[in-house]
Simulated assay, not measured.
Amino acid sequence: MKRCALLLLPLLLAACGGPGSYAEREDFQSDPRHRRDFPTAAAPLCDAARRVLLGDGYVVLPGRDALTFSGAKEFRVDDKGHAQLRLHLACSEARGGATLFVTATEEHFDVKTTRQSTSVGVPLVAPISFSSSTEGDNQVKTRGETVAARDFYERFYRAVQRELGGRE
């Protein structure tokens, strides 16, 4: 009996451990989806990437300096929901040119209706009660994740290369 309990103990402890952390899985290895080297200086590279986003209808917001910025574009999903594609970009000088770092996130939002009612009364003193109800629509983020599709990033890098004038 004691042996059986000792064999089951590790299984029970593993089951109670809860979900793993995403941070524990990070190994900080460079991913070619999120970086591309170009044979140009960082400022013209960032300008080309900015023009690509502006030309495709993205709203471009400046970052902390001229070499960082983000772009966002919204898509209607249905009558109550929309999705937002957001790109975060940074350009950095590198040996023989510059590196463009890109991370894209996709977030989905939905409209949720909330109802709240309150009733206050003192039935023993007087048959009077006061009630109030409110109803409102709130935007709620339903999901979000980093875009992992390699072809998405490749299409973006090709567009930046075209904007730079086809220089490789």
Rank of each mutant, 00 (worst) to 15 (best):
F130W: 14
E168R: 08
D79F: 06
S129Q: 15
G136Q: 15
A48S: 06
M1I: 14
T105L: 08
Q84M: 15
R64K: 15
L164G: 09
G97Y: 02
A98V: 11
T114G: 01
V59T: 15
A90P: 10
R167N: 06
V111E: 12
R167I: 15
D110M: 02
S21T: 13
G136I: 06
E107N: 04
L45Y: 02
K80P: 00
F152P: 00
R3W: 07
D37V: 05
E26F: 01
L85N: 04
A41H: 08
K2H: 13
S131T: 07
P32A: 13
C91M: 06
H108P: 09
T113W: 05
A148S: 13
R143K: 12
F75H: 12
F75K: 14
R25I: 12
Q84K: 11
G17D: 07
K73S: 01
A159L: 07
P127S: 09
G71N: 02
H82Y: 15
S30V: 14
D137T: 09
V102A: 10
A14D: 01
H108D: 02
F109P: 09
T142E: 10
S117D: 14
E24C: 04
L124C: 06
S117L: 02
A14G: 05
D27S: 01
L8I: 03
D27G: 00
T68D: 13
T142W: 05
M1L: 12
T105I: 06
T134L: 03
L87M: 13
A66P: 00
Q116R: 12
G63P: 00
L6D: 10
T105Q: 03
G81I: 04
S131E: 10
F156R: 03
S70M: 12
V60A: 10
V122G: 01
H34P: 02
R35F: 04
K112P: 00
Q161I: 05
A159V: 08
A149E: 15
H82K: 15
L164A: 04
E74S: 04
A72S: 10
